Computed example of a mutant assay.
Amino acid sequence: MTLRTTLAATTAIATLSFGGAAIAAEHSETMKIGITQNNVGVDSYQTTYEKAFIAAAEANDKIETVVLDAGGDVARQIAQMEDLIQQEVDAIIIWPTNGEAVIPAVRKAFQADIPVIVTNSNIAEAGFDFVASFSGPDNITQGARSAEIMCDKFMDMGIENEAQVVHITGQPGYTTAIERAKGFEDRLPEVCPNVTVVDTQPGDWNREKSQKVMEAFLVKYDDIDGVYAGDDNMGVGALNAAKAAGREGIIFVGATNFAVGYEAMERGEYWGSIYQSPVDDAEAALQTAIDVLNGEEVPFLNYFDTPKITQDNMGDYTKPVF
């Protein structure tokens, strides 16, 4: 993705409308864009996203950025939002730590005439009126596609009428986790109505915790045919537990195809996932903020595509860098 090099001139006024309110924002030659991220250190996706965001901003001499990380702490993210408002940045990008809890801070930015772009994981619907645009993946569709991947594999194996599945979700309260779970749980009964989800537990996006969750599942259930994890980091944690327990023949399906997931697919141990690039994610968020500040029309839900990837078609995709 190439960022535009020509932005608003010193005295230009960009007029935009979102949430029913019209905002006129004066911009100097340089646009100052602040970002508060969820938790850069929690996984390689978020680490790669931050690096890509900084690189994209540095490639454009008309952009000044303030890059912050909440470290998974809602209170810290709210304080960062307030700090960016005090700095009078031209736009704020937020990767929410919690889709409900950040709404009051997003509202404050809206009231200060600062457009907010939500990135990667949306806020709750109650806050939509205060947001200029969401830039990121369609997580409900991702969950649905993961269900289709799993069902297709069960049909190939001839177990679609008896298969039992366990589900490892992301962090409770986190919009991406909620939406991917909903997409999977809604779609699976449509495509494989006789497959049973026997248990669901959170893995908090953490590989080690997900391994412990899977260890407990393996003790509790003698018959597990499939595992759906909300991302490959958790999925590989579950795979590691199954390998350690000597439980074979389980179909592992994830989302956000991490390098570890791709490698496990190469080894034939992990069946499929959803291909999602943190570089595309970061660049799309920055470009959406630029477009909004330039007064261009952008979709409220500005999704980028995230296709299915399995052992059958993985040769069409490069190994993720995260």
Rank of each mutant, 00 (worst) to 15 (best):
T176R: 08
A105P: 01
K308H: 04
S133H: 02
G246N: 03
I33W: 03
P193C: 01
L68V: 03
V102S: 07
F258D: 13
A55K: 12
L84V: 05
A132S: 15
M265P: 10
G226Q: 04
I274R: 10
Q86W: 02
S146P: 12
A57M: 09
D281C: 01
W271Q: 00
Q111Y: 00
Q164E: 09
N161W: 00
Y317I: 09
G272I: 01
P202G: 05
A70K: 05
I290S: 00
V253I: 05
K51H: 01
T97G: 15
I13Q: 08
C192P: 09
Q37S: 03
I85P: 10
M31Q: 03
G136D: 10
Y45Q: 08
A105C: 02
S273R: 08
T200R: 13
A282H: 02
C151P: 15
V131P: 06
I23S: 04
G237N: 12
G226H: 04
I103P: 11
D73F: 02
D90A: 03
E283Q: 08
V236E: 08
I168K: 04
P172M: 05
A242K: 00
P307S: 05
A259G: 09
R187M: 14
W205L: 12
G254H: 07
N122Y: 12
A22R: 13
K220T: 13
A255T: 10
A124Y: 10
D186T: 11
Q77H: 07
T256G: 06
N39A: 14
D312Q: 02
C192F: 11
V260C: 04
D61I: 01
Q37Y: 01
Y221Q: 15
A255G: 12
A55E: 07
M81I: 07
W271F: 15
N98C: 06
M150G: 06
Q87W: 00
T15W: 00
A126S: 08
D305G: 08
Q111I: 01
Y45L: 09
A245C: 06
V67W: 02
E179R: 05
G170C: 09
A101P: 15
D316A: 11
T2W: 00
V165C: 11
D281L: 00
D156E: 14
V165S: 10
E185C: 04
K153N: 11
A22N: 15
Y275G: 13
G203F: 09
T6L: 12
Q171V: 11
Y270P: 12
V260M: 10
G230S: 12
E263G: 07
V131C: 06
G268N: 04
G249V: 08
N194T: 11
Q201Y: 09
